[in-house]
Nucleic acid binder design. Structure first.
Length: 137
RNA sequence: CCAGACGGUCGGAUGGCCGCUCUUCCGGGGUUCGCCCCGGCGGGGAGGAAAGUCCGGGCUCCACGGAAACACGGUGCCGGUUAACGGCCGGCGGGGGCGACCCCAGGGACAGUGCCACAGAAAGCAAACCGCCUGACGGGCUUCGGCCCCAAGGUAAGGGUGAAAGGGUGCGGUAAGAGCGCACCGCGCCGCCGGUAACGGGGGCGGCAGGGUAAACCCCACCGGGAGCAAGACCAAAUAGGGGCGGCAUGUUGAAUUUAUUCAGCAGGCGGGUUUCCGCGCCGCCGCCCGGGUAGGUCGCGCGAGGCGUCCGGUAACGGGCGUCCCAGAUGAAUGGCCAUCUAUCCCCCCUCAUUCAUUUGCGGGGGGUGGACAGAACCCGGCUUAAAGACCGUCUGGCUUU
RNA sequence: GCCGCCGUAGCUCAGGGGUAGAGCGCGCCAUUGGUAAUGGCGAGGCCGAAAGUUCGAUUCUUUCCGGCGGCA
């Protein structure tokens, strides 16, 4: 059965070692409002891309995964939550259409994420995808 | 009206688009009949501090026969309140303020021990450095009145040191002084009166003994078993390993016979470039079952010392009755993102009026910009502490004006 | 989330009521032809912050701030 991916329900990166693996791939772009890291899936690597599939037969090129990180340098809990929510809102507008499948992405919040105008933040994400050669359409 | 004291409430608003999480109900699908998944209409969704983790409890596990004592830790005026508290309320004492009110780590220093640097004569059974006073014998001077030096003694008034020098002020007194005597204040002891008590009032006696430090050891009284929801309980993959059963498989010996099978016993085989010796490592394959247990998941997890209203008791904290409501449950962690308008605030410009030496200051109006303080539940509750814009309400105090 | 520990010179640490030290480092001088080593001299500290106790606090008490570690 072919796996259909809805634009909105993308699997989130949740565990620390997944974040470390993406960071270890070494592909990142620093934009004024955010930092984007990316890692291409290895061939034969089997991930659960949707929550309810069994993660078996090689669907590795058929989706992408996304994680968010905001460190304590940005501020207290309120500021960090706010930065992550703005990143998530920007990702909801850009990623489902333009993110190249078969990748893991990590979005890192910066201090400027709080104050930057939202349209500029969306633009930051798009240019970051282009610079990492992960932009489609 | 101005300035202030105390207590309480709220903590941006409205609309639009796109989302998150929990959930009643409905529909569909799956199911090991426990439930799970998908979709839909509705409903709920951060704080007064959610914070710091400083106290007290509930709850859970561990330890433990009961009680007491000891050790350690905590608390510390008195009475009340509470599930409990180091909280709160009321009172007492001390300090501050014109006042409303505010602040206080506020038991014991004759139970004992220690410490009090430097300075100073002396710092704890007090003490004589300078001074002051008396002044034998002797000496010196003499205007023959006396004066000076010296042994010894008296003295805590004065000087000086210090945070602190053994009651304070005044009068008397004296050789000089001194609670030596007296008055007032302070202090101690003993009755009396008021108060549950802390304590207060007043009386008598005592001539002053008893410096400070207990957030030094300590004494006294009271309280306390330890750990914490990452507590704890349950389900449990892959991989490796443990145990059991069955089947297949290696060599050899023996026996039985149905002549290729069964039974019993023994062990050997493989690995490094080769051989010998020694040492080392591995021992098969398949299936099923069992228990431990990791990742992961589920529960614990929100009806509670609950909120609101009202009545009663109480000065109050608080307690009781009745009615009513159901009010967050996430886990890379939801409760939001974006836009518009309004609004609090602050800044700039212009105008009218008042004011001023002065576009100096202020009320009002208009325009533009900025743009909401501190801060995010993580098992729950009662407090404390800390952080921080602004708005509103009530009670009270001190002024000013008017009546 | 919970539980601990630590903040003293540029760095690593002593000091636990009487006014702050050691080692390394830094500066100057001596030694040497010169450097290192060695020796001498010296600078450098509101003892993380604020209240309180005390005559006096780096030390004792309380409350904050910052850093580090442990617990599935």
């Amino acid at each position: 059965m072919p796996i259909h991916i809805e634009p909105t329900d993308v699997l989130r990166l949740k565990q620390r070692r997944e974040f470390l693996r993406v960071a270890g791939a070494g592909h990142k772009w620093v934009a004024p409002g955010l930092i984007l890291q990316a890692r291409t899936h290895m061939p034969g690597e089997a991930f659960k891309v949707k929550e309810n599939d069994e993660g078996k037969d090689g669907n590795d090129a058929n989706g992408f995964r996304l994680g968010f990180t905001v460190s304590r340098k940005v501020g207290g809990a309120v500021d960090r939550n706010r930065a992550r929510r703005r990143l998530r809102a920007a990702a909801e507008r850009v990623m489902p259409r333009h993110a190249k499948h078969g990748n893991d992405f990590v979005l890192i919040g910066r201090r400027a994420t709080l104050k930057r105008r939202f349209q500029a933040l969306v633009g930051d994400l798009q240019t970051a995808l282009r610079k990492l050669d992960a932009y489609e359409e």
